[in-house]
């Protein structure tokens, strides 16, 4: 059975959890044509994972998580295109630091609020960043996008090629690190306190848990991971466009996460994977009407798959075992 990962469950990495990594490597060797798409999916998984940490575990409802992703993407891009910092790891570190700073700064303000107010504030911050990116054409290229980003080979060895092979393995490694960190957090007492805050913040206050500080901490960690994902996208694409900061993208990410299953670490893996492959295949079959298919998929998930695809898997498994829920 697929566990909902949380504190109190045995934290050892089970053999099932190695499967996705094996599958990812298998794709790399068996399906070279799909490696560019795969790299993009890996980036989105990392991004969804960061959102899952705050939305699924800490219960921070946000529609502005692209702020950190976009900031990371632009920081890496501007470093590579305008400032001559072409080392990918340096770009990544700078992107992570910038996103972390923004996370702390905005988190300290907006996490005092909850619910709709919080939602609006996250939207507002993203909107401000989007407008800055749109207007600062000298730095960001505005609506034309930022091109001409140079990225030197990783560690001086591995060049980013057109076939996306280096990018794929690089994304896979970063995702693995991100996954390991998120997993550690979820299985820690800190992770347990986040779930507590999500479920009942008043009681967490009553038992003396510093809810506000914990929320800021997890928000910053999540922002940092999102920033890394943004930098990854820049480096694999060698291009940044305005839509990395758009609401549509934030909404799309949320949809991917909901599709996979919120509040469970592998929901962030399944959602983007299924969504992006469905999108890829539909767009190929029906270039004029592919949005229609995506719409149908979403309606079906909302109607029949509460808890996402992994929720369905849970129910199927427990039915087979004759368990009652």
């Amino acid at each position: 059975m697929i566990r909902r990962a949380s504190y109190g469950e045995p934290a050892r990495i089970g053999w099932l959890e190695w499967l996705p990594w094996a599958a990812a490597l298998a794709v790399f060797f068996a399906l070279p044509e799909y490696v560019p798409l795969g790299a993009r999916i890996l980036v989105y998984i990392l991004f969804a994972l960061s959102l899952d940490l705050i939305l699924g575990y800490a219960g921070i409802i946000t529609l502005g998580h692209t702020a950190f992703f976009g900031l990371g993407a632009y920081v890496a891009g501007i470093l590579g295109a305008k400032l001559g910092v072409t080392d990918p790891l340096l770009q990544m570190a700078a992107a992570a630091a910038a996103a972390a700073l923004l996370g702390v700064a905005t988190g300290a303000v907006i996490l005092r609020t909850r619910g709709l107010t919080l939602l609006m504030l996250t939207l507002a911050i993203t909107a401000i960043l989007l407008e800055i990116a749109n207007k600062a054409t000298a730095l960001t290229g505005g609506a034309d996008g930022l091109s001409g980003i140079s990225v030197t080979p990783i560690l001086g060895q591995f060049r980013f090629d057109m076939f996306g092979k280096t990018a794929y393995l690089y994304c896979l490694l970063v995702l693995f690190a991100g996954w390991w960190i998120v997993r550690r957090i979820i299985y820690s007492p800190f992770g347990a306190s986040l779930v507590g805050i999500r479920e009942n913040v008043v009681r967490m206050h009553a038992i003396g848990s510093p809810a506000y500080a914990r929320l800021i901490a997890v928000y910053t960690i999540s922002a940092t991971i999102a920033g890394c994902a943004g930098a990854l996208l820049t480096q694999t694409n060698q291009f940044v466009g305005l839509n990395v900061l758009s609401f549509e993208f934030a909404g799309e990410l949320l949809v991917m996460l909901v599709l996979g299953g919120v509040g469970r670490i592998y929901g962030a893996f399944v959602g983007p994977l299924v969504y992006m492959i469905a999108q890829d295949q539909l767009a190929k079959q029906f270039p004029e009407y592919w949005y229609f298919g995506i719409g149908l998929l979403l309606v079906a998930v909302v109607l029949f798959a509460r808890g996402g695809l992994l929720g369905i898997a849970d129910r199927v498994v427990s039915k087979f075992r004759g368990e009652r829920r």
Partner: peptide
Amino acid sequence: MRFAGLVNK
């Protein structure tokens, strides 16, 4: 996650 791998393939 088994499902993700399967669906993918």
